[in-house]
């Protein structure tokens, strides 16, 4: 059970980052980005291809996976999203357009996989990077992979950077202002397009980085995005869609309950249940929203903090 929990923690970290990316893009541009899981899949492939070509450790290429996701985000904005936003497109149109982007990116991954196969004779349609991970030691006789610790460290660093950026820099404050009221920000001289590009970059970066982390956990295939899209969206929605930190929490709630839940169910009910694993994130999402309609980000965290640490009000 400990090995399941460790995998679940690393999985949740990657999921949380990707979900935070979905939330950032949604909050600032109102676009529900269906192409996000393809950004994540590209994070997988950047790490895999660079590692296969240049060796070393998969960890060297993680940040590049994130940056490539960021570039995909910027490209999506300039090629598709920008024109629709200018034309005043509604939410549904924005959302459907990213479905188109998703198909393009999915096709591109397959083309890239074929290119790797024919040119370098890799096996990009089925690769496992976890065997190249380092071992931290063992816990009750179970080996602990490096990714468990590294993924947690990355999440903490990202939270710190985001917090500093959003509250200490002018650009970050301008971003929050644009999210709260774009027209008001505009008449005060804040160029909303700059904020939109920045959000797409940040969102894409987190999506790609999430993928880079997950590439050390899962078998990589061109279809990996399809496996991840449901839990990513579930995490973002559980987080309340209007809070970056809420979606980070959502990532952990969804990720841990998915991996631990399916292991427990498998033990109790038998192996046949495993194929129903993708259902768990959706169930958790539905139950959470029934109890807290505004999602985790909408909870009164200030009050909860006071209750817990200061003994009531």
């Amino acid at each position: 059970m400990i090995d399941v929990l460790l995998t679940a923690i690393a999985y949740s970290s990657g999921l949380a980052l990707a979900a935070a990316g979905i939330t950032i893009i949604y909050m600032s541009t109102g676009t529900f980005n269906f192409a996000h899981a393809s950004f994540t899949a590209w994070g997988f492939y950047v790490v895999f291809s660079l590692f296969s070509l240049m060796k070393g450790s998969p960890y060297y290429y993680m940040i590049l996976g994130g940056l490539f996701g960021g570039v995909l985000g910027i490209a999506t904005y300039y090629i598709v999203n920008r024109w629709l936003l200018r034309a005043g497109a509604d939410m549904v149109t924005l959302m459907m357009s990213t479905l188109g982007v998703d198909l393009v990116l999915f096709a591109a991954i397959n083309i890239f996989a074929d290119y790797l196969t024919y040119t370098y004779h890799f096996n990009p349609r089925l690769f496992v990077l976890s065997s190249y991970d380092f071992k931290l030691g063992s816990l009750y006789g179970i080996p602990v992979s490096g990714i468990v610790l590294v993924s947690i460290i990355i999440v903490v660093i990202i939270i710190a950077i985001l917090q500093l950026f959003l509250t200490r820099t002018k650009m970050g404050i301008a971003m929050r202002a644009t999210i709260e009221n774009a027209m008001l920000a505009t008449v005060l001289g804040i160029n909303p397009e700059l904020i939109y590009v920045l959000s797409w970059f940040l969102g894409g970066f987190l999506g790609g980085l999430g993928g880079a982390i997950l590439s050390l956990l899962f078998t990589g295939t061109p279809n990996i995005g399809m496996l991840l899209i449901v839990p990513e969206f579930a995490a973002s929605i559980v987080g309340g869609l209007y809070s970056v930190f809420g979606s980070l929490l959502g990532g952990f709630l969804i990720g841990i309950s998915q991996k631990v839940g399916i292991a427990l169910l498998g033990k109790w009910l038998g192996g046949w249940i495993i194929v129903y694993e993708p259902l768990i994130p959706l169930l958790i999402m539905a139950v959470t929203l029934l109890i807290y309609p505004k999602g985790l980000g909408g909870l009164p965290w200030g009050k909860i903090y006071k209750r817990l640490f200061k003994g009531g009000e």
Binding site: K170, I173, R176, A177, E180, L184, A185, L188
Partner: peptide
């Protein structure tokens, strides 16, 4: 105003 921004952040913006 932006309800979730502080007074000082408004002035900065």
């Amino acid at each position: 105003l932006w309800p979730k921004l502080t007074v000082y952040e408004h002035l900065e913006l």
